[in-house]
């Protein structure tokens, strides 16, 4: 059963420091990512996204819990990590080497040096003509592109990308989105994508997980999550009576002549029935699908992504 999952986190926690300096970066996080999809990982700054990713890469050891990749524990398991390629918290390279030489050193470390594959990847990420310059002269965007190539050097099954579009121009961001979908749809890989850009996650990901204060607060299929919550706008009179009726059950705010109610789409008939029963006049009802941004803000209590 677990073989169907690329990633499984079982009650994982990570605490840094001791006594007064103790910081719980991740708390009792359980998560399953099925193989063959793009999973979006969202959370405000300091929510524990990077710590979680580092635990998946065995760079950081969990204080409690287990991280499994393809059903096997990741700890002290370099052969298992050969199935994983990652761009973690901004691309970092040996500044004193060229881009091409950096890829060579990484490939040799993993025992998969193939100059032809390196050249193909450099071309794919648009770095072929700059590969023989030292990395010290690269912009952030160029390093990110090289980081994407490095993550794919050994043709991994699972690709973990932490903010892959940081420092890229709009065209580069679009390239990465297409690239990520291509990895899943044409190459059958699994992508775990952590991003600040909610629109990016909404466009690219099949599943999403939202982490806040080290806890997973929301997870599920992106389309289901977005359709499960809606903004219901009602033009009603008298406004105060309607507000008093709905507020105990649904988050509701008055906006001019309109009431804005956060509720599931299937609650619309119930809302209307209640208002009619209380002799509230209803002039218009509009149901708007929730954006991922609204969902994120509701789940994290309004923190910035």
């Amino acid at each position: 059963m677990s073989q169907n999952f690329a990633i499984q986190l079982e009650n994982v926690s990570k605490t840094f420091g001791r006594r007064r300096k103790r910081v719980e970066a991740v708390r009792h996080l359980s998560l399953e990512v099925a193989a063959g999809q793009v999973f979006g990982f969202l959370g405000p700054n300091g929510a524990g996204k990077s710590t979680t990713i580092r635990m998946m890469m065995d760079l950081i050891r969990p204080s409690t819990g287990t991280v499994l990749l393809y059903g096997r524990p990741v700890q002290n398991n370099p052969p298992l990590l050969q199935k994983v390629g990652a761009l973690v918290e901004g691309a970092a390279f040996y500044d004193f080497l060229t881009g091409r030489k950096n890829l060579e050193v990484l490939a040799r470390t993993r025992g998969c040096y193939d100059p032809q594959r390196g050249q193909t990847l450099l071309a794919q990420v648009g770095m072929a003509d700059r590969a023989d310059r030292k990395v010290s002269g690269y912009s952030t965007g160029m390093k990110q592109r090289l980081g994407l190539a490095a993550a794919l050097l050994h043709d991994p099954d699972l690709v973990i990308l932490d903010e892959p579009t940081n420092g890229l121009d709009p065209a580069g961001i679009q390239d990465v989105r297409l690239f990520v979908r291509d990895l899943v749809e044409k190459q059958g890989k699994t992508v775990f994508l952590s991003s600040h850009m909610l629109s990016e996650v909404e466009q690219v990901c099949d599943q999403v997980g939202i982490i806040s204060n080290g806890r997973l607060v929301q997870t599920g299929n992106v389309a289901d999550l977005l359709s499960s919550q809606a903004m219901i706008r009602l033009e009603v009179l008298p406004l105060a009576r309607a507000l008093g009726l709905l507020l105990p059950k649904w988050p509701t705010v008055a906006n001019g002549r309109w009431l804005e109610v956060q509720a599931a789409r299937e609650h619309v008939p119930e809302i209307v029935q209640q208002l009619v029963a209380a002799e509230v006049q209803i002039f218009q009802v509009a149901v708007q699908q929730q954006s991922l941004e609204a969902l994120f803000l509701a789940a994290t209590g309004g923190a910035d992504a």
Binding site: M57, D58, P78, F93, Y94, D95, R110
Partner: peptide, 17 residues
């Protein structure tokens, strides 16, 4: 200082490195 352990560690045993 270069932040490069994260690139090489997943591919190789720490003792070997």
């Amino acid at each position: 200082q270069w932040g490069t352990w994260k690139n090489i560690l997943p591919g190789q045993s720490r003792t070997v490195l």
